[in-house]
């Protein structure tokens, strides 16, 4: 399953960069993220509740940043498993300044296995698109709400958020 697109976020790349790479803030963007704890450099343990409406499941896994080139590009790796199956994804995110804003180009591929792959097939593409969209919508909202203000300094790197 491949995903690609562009989205414009209302802040310069440096701010977007710090949002995307700051675990506690990031955890608020990830739909359904219930927990994100550091697990080594640029690596986090995650607990996520993914799904749409009645179809949802809990996944435990890791989130990893790689090839970080601040504030230009990074690779985001996701790996999770739960009762409905497993998800493994990798996405490349590129940030390009556009005036006061940042254009984000993302390309990614996700592999889904287990139950969700064999019965949820017809919904998967749309579900993935929806999750990506929710992610960037939250990012937009977050950036707009903190517009002008500096990012919160050193909040404890542990974030909890109740379901979606």
């Amino acid at each position: 399953m491949k995903l690609a697109g562009t989205v414009t976020l209302p802040a310069p790349p440096s701010e977007v960069w710090s949002l995307l790479t700051d675990a506690p803030r990031l955890s608020r963007l990830l739909p359904g993220c219930e927990q994100l704890e550091p697990d080594g450099p640029d690596r986090y343990k995650a607990a996520v509740k993914f799904g749409i409406a009645a179809i949802s499941g809990k996944y435990a896994g890791t989130l990893e940043f790689a090839e970080k080139k601040p504030p230009h590009s990074l690779i985001l790796k996701l790996d999770g498993k739960g009762l409905p199956g497993f998800v493994k994804g990798e996405g490349r995110i590129e940030l390009t300044p556009k005036g006061d804003t940042t254009e984000i180009a993302y390309t990614g591929e996700a592999h889904v296995g287990g139950l969700i792959a064999s019965v949820g097939q017809r919904m998967l593409d749309a579900a993935a698109r929806k999750i990506v969209q929710q992610f960037f919508d939250s990012a937009k909202a977050e950036l707009e709400s903190t517009k002008g203000a500096a990012a919160e300094p050193n909040s404890p790197v542990k974030a909890h958020r109740k379901g979606n």
């Binding site: 009645a54 179809i55 949802s56 499941g57 409905p84 139950l115 969700i116 019965v119 949820g120 379901g163």
Partner: peptide
């Protein structure tokens, strides 16, 4: 709230529950 699911005829919900894609 959203921990509950309504069951009417059951033809949308039960297949999901049997597959355990849904577990209200």
């Amino acid at each position: 709230g959203d921990e509950a699911k309504l069951l009417a005829g059951g033809h949308s919900l039960l297949p999901l529950m049997k597959l355990r894609l849904a577990a209200p």
